[in-house]
């Protein structure tokens, strides 16, 4: 086993056992590699986590239990980015500028209700790591459509007969348009994808200013797949180019993970109950949008891989 993997296995884990995440929670795997990866990259830095309302307000623990090995400020739905800015400002004044302030926000708080705050913190180039934990709907309340819900996906507020109008908000590209130092997309579906993931977390630890990590993580009850499939679903999302892994580092775009043999998006969609109602025509339309977006990214990256 390669040394870098041995090191990861031996890391102290900052999401503690006994947390109340669902069995097979995709974001639980992701947050582990974000927090532990930031510590691995900058062992001397402490982390403060800022969590707007989400499943993670609950997973953090029922009072007086704390499921994290870091300090966590829970916030209202819309103000996490501003509050991370406030904590960072205070710590800077108190001589604790070495602390990494990390927002862990869902797609509802990031793409919808808190979007103006995220955009403003990016525009101010606040020195924080903003992580979008994207599971493509309001999952804490039981799977309602958000601005990051993809076309065709069943949610309780976009039932099969009444699909969402429009497309999933392209948050990573919107954030990159703010001209911030670092934007990346991440997913955990295989060991090579983990290497890509950890490299991006390390890069985020090194850069100063507003860093935006967009992670796609599956939700077994919301996406309707067995608890054992969270990594598989993530792998298929990337290998089908449904969720391309790329970064925009100092304005330079790069596709960081090229599927050798891109799979049809159908391979991703058919693993999940939320897409089970789709017709062939609807899947073709999704495929066309996936191809369109890949070509657009490839153009931005101009062949940089």
């Amino acid at each position: 086993m390669p040394a870098w993997l041995e090191e990861i296995v031996a890391e102290e884990k900052l999401l503690l056992p006994g947390n109340s995440a669902c069995a097979g929670c995709g974001p639980a795997i992701s947050i582990r590699h974000v927090l532990d990866g930031l510590v691995a990259a900058k062992p001397e830095s402490k982390i403060v986590l800022v969590i707007p309302s989400s499943c993670w307000t609950i997973i953090a623990g029922v009072f007086p239990v704390n499921a994290f090995g870091v300090s966590v400020q829970l916030t209202p739905f819309a103000s996490a980015a501003a509050e991370a800015s406030g904590i960072k400002a205070a710590l800077r004044l108190l001589g604790r500028d070495d602390t990494t302030v990390v927002v862990w926000g869902g797609d509802g708080s990031t793409a919808d209700i808190g979007f103006s705050g995220v955009s403003a913190a990016a525009e101010r180039n606040e020195d924080i790591v903003y992580v979008l934990n994207d599971n493509e709907a309001y999952m804490n309340t039981g799977n309602q459509k958000s601005g990051a819900t993809p076309e065709g996906a069943w949610t309780t507020t976009t039932p099969a007969g009444a699909p969402r109008a429009g497309q999933k908000k392209d948050i990573a590209r919107i954030m990159a348009a703010h001209g911030i130092p670092y934007v990346a997309t991440l997913a955990l579906g295989s060991v090579p994808m983990l290497r890509d993931f950890r490299a991006k977390v390390t890069r985020a630890a090194e850069v100063r200013g507003f860093r935006f990590l967009h992670i796609l993580s599956g939700c077994p009850p919301g996406w309707r797949y067995p608890t054992s499939q969270s990594t598989e679903v993530a792998r298929l999302a990337v290998e089908s180019r449904y969720f391309p892994l790329f970064e925009c580092d100092g304005g330079e775009w790069r596709i960081t993970f090229q599927p050798k043999q891109p799979l049809p998006v159908r391979a991703f969609l058919e693993t999940q109950g939320r897409f089970s109602h789709l017709s062939s025509d609807e899947i073709d339309s999704i495929q066309a949008h996936v191809d369109e977006r890949w070509n657009l990214l490839a153009g931005l990256a101009r062949g940089r891989v």
């Binding site: 916030t75 501003a82 509050e83 406030g86 400002a89 108190l94």
Partner: peptide, 27 residues
């Protein structure tokens, strides 16, 4: 020695000062 932040709304502005106070400074 003083942080002055232009927020994008009062909701964020209150969040900012609440969080800064929480981390130990007068706001």
């Amino acid at each position: 020695d003083i942080e002055y932040a232009n927020l994008e709304s009062e909701h964020s502005m209150f969040g900012y000062v609440i969080a800064a106070a929480r981390a130990g400074v007068r706001t």
